[in-house]
């Protein structure tokens, strides 16, 4: 129930955003300027999801000017600096990921108190609602659900005889301190342990050779492992390569190893297409650009304040729908799509 509500909100939102309802609202005489301050810089192809959806939004609401500002540095300080600059320009609304509630709390509370509405996107403030930064709502994915839904899909496939039943599942994580990745593993763990499988989280690091060496060591020491869940798409080819070198038959079939990953990225999609990966997930990046702008708009125009977070994912990506996903992601990534296919 707790999950159904935000998912339903996201579904309604997606429908209205994409189908053309609320046409009357766009006839407003007021003009607005909304700023998205983002940690996803131009060096990350995922930025295109957000900027393209914001362009779509401004086509639909021509009285709204949207701006996307971001940093290419993986630095919270740099994001805070950009946010403070954005607040100083007195926009009519801000969308920002809560990469660090400690670092962003001060400037965001000041902005909200001065009358600038804020929507959190991509990363929520993890604290309870009455303690968190008082933003209008959060628009983004849910990492725990990502692991859980992928686990459920894998079990369905196993019960249908398409893949082996899980015996031991290893969640290969490249960042042992990343709460989002831990939540992905935890979601998968709940489903797999309920199905009677052993589950373990393995810190592999992000250095490719070291990660492969670590995974290989784990698989040798735990030969009953038959599922690998990589919580980043780029580590899925590493996992497949290790399992393949060890003769563990890692392709998707009713024997050997099964590999599951995350993200609607070229590595994940091409892995599914080639039969190397069972499934992946999308956190609905497109909506994460569009929906915050709409809620800011509706807040101004209609006085609406959403009463729950709005989940834009996960959507489980499977082989059945791979052509649709490939077409869509190719449109967003352009030539980079093929460059990022590391299979």
């Amino acid at each position: 129930m707790k999950i159904a509500k935000p998912l339903a909100a996201a579904a309604v939102l997606a429908t209205t955003a994409l189908s053309g309802s609320l046409a009357a609202a766009q006839e407003s005489d007021d003009s607005y300027r909304f700023v998205m301050v983002s940690h996803i810089g131009s060096n990350d192809p995922n930025m295109a999801w957000l900027t393209l959806s914001m362009d779509e939004f401004t086509k639909r609401y021509p009285n709204v000017q949207t701006e996307y500002i971001s940093t290419n540095q993986y630095s919270i300080q740099e994001l805070v600096r950009l946010l403070e600059q954005a607040i100083a320009t007195r926009p009519d609304g801000i969308a920002v990921p809560i990469v660090s509630s400690d670092a962003l709390e001060g400037p965001l509370r000041k902005a909200i108190e001065s009358g600038i509405p804020v929507v959190a996107f991509n990363i929520a403030d993890p604290r309870p609602k009455d303690e968190r930064i008082p933003y209008l709502t959060y628009v983004g994915g849910d990492e725990y659900l990502t692991g859980q839904e992928l686990g459920k899909y894998a079990l369905e496939q196993a019960e249908a005889g398409e893949i082996p039943m899980p015996e031991r599942v290893v969640c290969a994580s490249h960042d042992s301190a990343h709460q989002g990745l831990k939540a992905r593993c935890a979601g998968m763990k709940e489903v797999m342990e309920a199905a009677g499988a052993e589950f373990e989280e393995l810190f592999i690091g992000a250095e490719p050779a070291t990660a492969r060496n670590t995974m290989q060591s784990y698989l040798q020491a735990n030969p009953d492992t038959n599922y690998i869940f990589t919580v980043a798409p780029w580590s899925a080819p590493w996992a497949w390569g290790v399992a393949n070198d060890m003769g563990l038959d890692p392709d998707v079939d009713d024997k050997g190893m099964t590999i599951i990953t995350v993200d609607a990225s070229p590595a994940a999609l091409e892995g599914i297409k080639a039969g190397h990966v069972l499934a992946s997930s999308s956190q609905g990046f497109w909506l994460q650009g569009y929906a915050p702008m709409e809620w800011l708009y509706w807040y101004h125009e209609l006085g609406y304040t959403p009463q729950s977070d709005i989940l834009t994912g996960p959507t489980v990506i499977t082989a059945d729908a791979i052509d649709h996903w490939e077409t869509m992601v190719r449109k967003v990534f352009g030539d980079v799509y093929d460059e990022q296919n590391t299979w």
């Binding site: 490249h174 690091g205 992000a206 250095e207 490719p208 050779a209 780029w234 590493w238 390569g241 590391t342």
Partner: peptide, 8 residues
């Protein structure tokens, strides 16, 4: 294993 990553 020609799979690059910035953390290599």
């Amino acid at each position: 294993q020609p799979q690059t990553h910035v953390t290599i």
